[in-house]
């Protein structure tokens, strides 16, 4: 991972500048670039929102080694919380935003607590059932959610007097929120929690014997990851301005899993790459009518066969110079094992 890590920070800064400038009309600055149209702005905003939800899945699966099949359901909880609080109760945007994340965190704890007391894979089953339940709930409970008719006119917020109604301004707002949420995730993964997550993914028995409360960390990873689904939903609702149950069904939940696989599980930028593939490919394949999901599935299967660690895993593999395995010949504690390592290292390099 080290090669990729070295380029992560400068690449991030350049990417951010590009991301902020690219969709804008730059002709005023003397640059012959007219920026993105309405549709392009919608797609690039959707990409970021999807990436936020995928970051949550990456935390749960890529870092902590747990399973979730309900991220779209958490996105739905977030989106409906936002829509209901702002349209029906007139709650300020950021209060509703915090409520969406907090609700998903609490639901994550309530779901995960019984599931994680039992054995592995229970979380997969529980989240599977939960995904179906949430979708049925928002489809059937018309009095609250509007059922299949959904909720219309979800407002875009006004922040410090700036109206985010225009698509470009709203895109910048989404970009800003993405950066904030990515920074929080980065900081969480750099704290001792991040190391504990890695430990429980790699070897839970050893982790537990080192005093790591494996059950609590699993639960926290799941709840925080689910909260990211809620935050993404709270951005999704004002992005599309009209929400209905379809995007929060089981299928879209499974789709997040594929995106993480394609992007690169356990890579910080994996969700962004995966979400780009997951959002763009279906758009490009629109002309195929109903065939898009099948084509995407085939692409994923081919990709996973060729690059089992995702696109970022593949890039890393190509960037990393072939390193000699460590030999301890110079160390003070030379032994038979060391000689073996040495000779096999020579075989690799020669």
């Amino acid at each position: 991972m080290s090669t990729l890590k070295r380029y992560q920070f400068p690449a991030l800064i350049i990417a951010l500048i590009l991301l902020a400038a690219m969709p804008a009309d730059l002709t005023g600055l003397g640059i012959p670039w007219t920026g993105f149209k309405r549709y392009g702005l919608y797609i690039i905003s959707l990409w970021l929102v999807t990436a936020i939800a995928a970051m949550g899945v990456n935390l749960i699966m890529g870092y902590a080694g747990q399973e979730t099949l309900a991220q779209a359901a958490f996105l739905g909880i977030g989106a409906y919380t936002m829509a209901l609080l702002t349209t029906k109760l007139g709650v300020p945007y950021f209060v509703a935003f915090a409520a969406a994340g907090a609700l998903c965190f609490v639901v994550g704890i309530l779901l995960g607590f019984p599931a994680l007391r039992v054995q592995k894979h229970y979380l997969a089953f529980v989240t599977l059932a939960f995904a179906v339940f949430v979708w049925l709930f928002i489809r059937n409970e018309q009095w609250l959610t509007g059922g299949v008719f959904g909720i219309q006119d979800v407002p875009r917020p006004v922040i410090f007097g700036i109206k985010t109604r225009p698509p470009l301004v709203f895109y910048w707002f989404v970009l800003f929120m993405t950066v904030v949420l990515a920074a929080v995730m980065w900081w969480l993964l750099r704290s001792p929690w991040g190391r504990a997550f890695t430990a429980l993914r790699e070897n839970p028995v050893r982790a537990e014997s080192l005093g790591i409360d494996v059950r609590s960390y699993k639960l926290l990873a799941f709840a925080v990851g689910s909260a990211y689904g809620g935050f993404a939903g709270a951005l999704y609702a004002p992005l599309v301005e009209f929400i209905d149950p379809a995007p929060f069904a089981l299928g879209p939940s499974l789709y997040y899993l594929l995106m993480i696989l394609v992007g690169g599980m356990g890579y910080f930028l994996g969700p962004f790459v995966g979400a780009a593939v997951g959002v763009l490919i279906p758009e490009w394949l629109r002309f195929t009518e109903g065939l898009a999901p099948i084509i995407f599935a085939v692409i994923v299967m081919i990709m996973v066969a060729l690059a089992p660690r995702g696109i970022l895993g593949l890039i890393e593999q190509l960037l990393t110079p072939k390193r000699r395995p460590h030999s301890d010949v110079t160390g003070p504690t030379l032994g038979a094992g060391a000689t073996l390592t040495k000779s096999s290292a020579e075989k690799v390099t020669s």
Partner: peptide, 21 residues
């Protein structure tokens, strides 16, 4: 560090510690 970190502070306070606890 991993072998010692869980003996530092509480689970919550560890979130705000530097990476090496």
């Amino acid at each position: 560090i991993l072998a010692g970190q869980e003996h530092r502070g509480t689970m919550f306070s560890r979130l705000f510690m530097p990476g090496d606890a």
